[in-house]
Nucleic acid binder design. Sequence first.
DNA 1: CGGACCCTTCGGCGCCCGCCGAAGCGTCGC
DNA 2: GCGACGCTTCGGCGGGCGCCGAAGGGTCCG
Lengths: 240, 240
Amino acid sequence: MSNLDAHPQAPDLAALAALLADRTRAAFCLALLDGRAWTATELAHHAAVAASTATGHLNLLVDAGLLAQERQGRHRYVRLAGPETAHLVETLASLAPRRAAAPRSLPAVTRSRALARARTCYDHLAGALGVAVTDAMTGRGLLDWDQGPALTGAGAHWLAHLGITLPPVARRPLVRSCLDWTERRPHLAGAVGAALCRHALDHGWITRIGTGRAVALTPTGRSALHDSLGLPDETHTPTA
Amino acid sequence: MSNLDAHPQAPDLAALAALLADRTRAAFCLALLDGRAWTATELAHHAAVAASTATGHLNLLVDAGLLAQERQGRHRYVRLAGPETAHLVETLASLAPRRAAAPRSLPAVTRSRALARARTCYDHLAGALGVAVTDAMTGRGLLDWDQGPALTGAGAHWLAHLGITLPPVARRPLVRSCLDWTERRPHLAGAVGAALCRHALDHGWITRIGTGRAVALTPTGRSALHDSLGLPDETHTPTA
DNA sequence: CGGACCCTTCGGCGCCCGCCGAAGCGTCGC
DNA sequence: GCGACGCTTCGGCGGGCGCCGAAGGGTCCG
């Protein structure tokens, strides 16, 4: 009985894992979790490798279908091929040993400031803000995790009230739990998470900082999230 | 800006992926998805490698925390360290390219026979049987996937009626979707999936075949699943 | 007690793969 | 048209890692 007979999937699984088993390619995929398209040169700089090295790595990822690419003149843009790839990268990231562990327990006022340091995770909100939004929605009965992650009726109404319409065809889960690497608690992913993030960007609740995944919570956003979810808002909360 | 500065997680993520980026280790982990403990020698035979090779690989996986081990005299038993590891392996397996694709569309009678060829996936039912159970539960309103995978009230009653009690502390999701590699459709995972599988084994609905993940649906099981979920039962259904 | 068995360590071999700079092609903007 | 820029190809180098058999230690069983 050969290895192939025992588990035909083993070589394929190993090959897929091997694509992420290189620190440069891992850095590429982590960067691309911001949901945007990067050029080859940007990724090379980001990962501090030569352009020729980046080319080889990107070819592997594109050929394997983990990344999608688009040519615009001399620029080669790549992005994660879809939510499945993002989910794989997220899963690996959530299980990988932590290095710089975030503080476990923040005082409330510090937590309020921490909301300002948010980021996106693929196409949904992550970090302290993502977790805070998720927790608040859960606390207000907009999400129900008791029997698996689900959007409640109240949650659907709340979204509609905000003017958020969900995609008519549910080809991806409406609600998915995504374990936040820094907070070590789940934040909201799936179609709802993506729609919320889109809404937050479109309405100026958050703005992107630089070219990474960092986003800044704006005063408008802080106020809106306070009104709609009761998140701490420094303009309304006295400083302790 | 060095690679480490850009993404501190990248080397760790890559290291984790590297653990599964070897066909022998991948075969080990796929085998261990049956949820049982295997000895080092069994795994070596299974993957067709020398005992010394298996030792080295197992040491890597155990040291990294992906596997848990237990010594009993001269035997070294290892198992997957927990559902998180299983989820990672499942995720990789579901994204890995397929080789021997299962037939896409089975005639009903052949599908009935296919139910007999089931398997477990970590601690829940998989394959044709797992998918059939999942579909039947969904069709009868016991599971609701419209807003994320969820157990319905009817589902909870159904489980109670079967005598299945769920763990009081929900430290893992009650319901989780697990994409079935061979059927390419989701089967039920999570605490409910595990409880169902346990129940099916305890009540003789399925029995294990050999030392792998294959399980056989028994006449008792076929009858019980027909009664409780309307699954095809050859003793009640005329052969076409 | 002795042989069989499980498992581990060791050393050597061969293969794979990421890295780089140099050279080169195509695009872009002045 | 020319230089700058983005990207690709090529060849060589060095490091890493899985593989094996041999040797050996510990456990098990007749």
